[in-house]
Lab assay of single mutants.
Amino acid sequence: MIHRILNHSVDKKGHVHYLIKWRDLPYDQASWESEDVEIQDYDLFKQSYWNHR
């Protein structure tokens, strides 16, 4: 379960990846995930991330 999205990056092919802080895990366990991976409520977290940038 996502706690929040910390950052994003765009690779050379134009694909967006998000650095995800996972609920109940420390920050050093955050991981980069592609924008099209199937994660519960991912779209809501991405929308919230962009609304607050």
Rank of each mutant, 00 (worst) to 15 (best):
H52E: 15
Q29P: 03
R53M: 10
R23G: 07
E35P: 01
W22H: 04
H15S: 13
K46F: 01
D36P: 01
Q29E: 09
S31N: 05
L6F: 04
E38P: 10
D36Y: 10
I5W: 03
S34E: 14
H17W: 09
D43T: 08
D11H: 01
D28R: 11
K21L: 10
G14Y: 05
H52V: 14
Q29H: 09
N7K: 13
H15K: 15
N7H: 09
S31I: 04
V16I: 13
H8K: 00
V16D: 05
E35N: 09
I2M: 03
K46Q: 07
K13T: 08
W32S: 00
Y18L: 01
V16P: 05
Q40E: 13
S31F: 00
R53V: 12
Y18A: 05
K12R: 10
H3G: 14
H17L: 09
Y42T: 05
S34D: 09
Q29C: 11
S9Y: 11
P26E: 06
H3R: 08
N51S: 13
V37G: 10
K46T: 04
E33A: 12
D24R: 07
D36N: 15
P26M: 03
D41R: 01
S31R: 05
W50C: 03
L44G: 08
L19I: 03
K12L: 10
L25H: 10
K21H: 14
R23C: 09
S48V: 14
E35Q: 08
D24E: 14
M1Y: 15
L44Q: 12
H8P: 02
S9E: 12
S9K: 15
K13N: 12
M1R: 09
H52N: 14
W22C: 03
V37C: 15
H15A: 12
V10F: 10
R53N: 09
I20W: 05
I39M: 07
R4H: 12
D36Q: 08
I2P: 03
Q40C: 13
M1Q: 05
S48Q: 13
D43E: 15
Y18P: 02
S34F: 05
H15L: 11
Y49S: 00
Q29K: 15
K21P: 02
D11A: 05
S48H: 15
K12A: 14
I20C: 05
I5E: 00
E38F: 12
E38Q: 13
M1K: 15
D36W: 08
R4F: 06
S9G: 06
S9F: 12
N51C: 07
F45L: 08
P26S: 11
H52A: 13
S48D: 14
L25N: 11
R4N: 09
E33I: 15
L19M: 10
K12V: 11
Q40T: 13
Q40A: 13
I5H: 04
H15Y: 08
H8N: 04
Y18D: 00
I2D: 05
W22L: 03
Y42H: 12
D11W: 05
H8F: 01
I2V: 06
L44K: 15
D28P: 05
L44V: 15
E33Q: 11
I20H: 02
D24V: 06
Q47K: 15
K13C: 09
Y49A: 03
N51G: 11
L25S: 12
W22D: 04
Y18M: 00
H52I: 09
I2A: 00
K21C: 07
Y18S: 05
I20K: 01
V10K: 11
D41E: 07
F45I: 07
H52T: 15
Y42C: 10
Y27Q: 15
V10P: 06
H17M: 13
L25R: 14
P26T: 08
W32F: 00
E33N: 05
V10T: 12
S34M: 07
S34Y: 04
I20S: 03
N7T: 11
N51K: 11
N7I: 06
A30D: 03
D24Y: 06
D24W: 08
N51A: 14
H15I: 14
H17P: 01
L44S: 14
W22P: 00
L19A: 01
W50Q: 00
P26R: 06
K21Q: 12
H17T: 15
E35F: 00
K46M: 02
H8Y: 03
L6D: 01
N7E: 09
D28C: 13
W32I: 04
D36S: 13
R4A: 06
I39V: 04
Y49E: 02
V10D: 05
Q29S: 09
K13Q: 11
D28H: 11
D43W: 10
P26N: 10
H15E: 12
S48N: 14
H15M: 11
I39N: 00
D24I: 04
V10C: 06
I39A: 02
R23K: 14
D28F: 06
D41I: 00
K13I: 06
K46G: 02
D43S: 09
H52G: 14
Y18N: 03
D36H: 12
D41C: 02
K12T: 13
V16M: 13
I20F: 00
D24L: 06
F45W: 09
Y49P: 05
D24T: 09
E33M: 15
D36E: 12
S9C: 13
Q47V: 12
Y18W: 03
W32K: 00
H52F: 12
L25W: 06
K46W: 02
L25K: 15
N7G: 08
S31W: 03
H15C: 11
Q47N: 15
L25D: 07
L6M: 06
H8A: 01
V10N: 04
D43G: 11
D36L: 08
K13P: 02
Q47E: 13
M1G: 13
Q47M: 07
I2Y: 01
H15W: 05
